[in-house]
Design a protein around this nucleic acid. Structure first.
Length: 109
DNA sequence: AATGTGACATACC
DNA sequence: TGGTATGCCACAT
């Protein structure tokens, strides 16, 4: 597993419950802010990661569930978010600005 | 080494 | 508002 994927998984695995982040934020945190696509690509392999990663907490910069189509029942992604208290409307997280979690917070722990 | 791909991000019709 | 096109980066083949 390449370091990049490993880091992506590590970050995603540590997203606090009830929060969400974006592909771009993760990419930037890893030092390749332009590699947001690669982050999503990494999520593609998330299902093969050890405990399945909370990929539902990762959305695009708009807070929209663009990747829901990759979940088994696509509706599952929204359900999981709502179970955590995140309001999702029209496939987009409401108050995403408030829900947004910056990976840099990991550095504070 | 080269080409194709993608769960993004932006810019432009 | 919304679809299409391009740039970008790392991975797969």
């Amino acid at each position: 597993m390449s370091d990049f994927y490993n880091k992506v998984f590590d970050v995603v695995a540590q997203i606090p419950k009830g929060r969400a982040t974006s592909y771009g934020a993760i990419a930037q945190f890893l030092g390749a802010k332009q590699a947001s696509r690669t982050v999503g690509y990494a999520m593609n392999a998330s299902h093969q990661a050890n405990p399945t990663l909370p990929a539902h907490r990762v959305v695009n910069r708009n807070g929209c569930l663009t990747g829901k189509h990759h979940f088994h029942p696509p509706e599952r992604m929204q359900e999981l978010l709502e179970l955590e208290g995140i309001k999702v409307k029209n496939d987009c997280i409401e108050n995403f600005q408030q829900i947004f979690w910056d990976p840099e917070e990991l550095l504070s722990n």
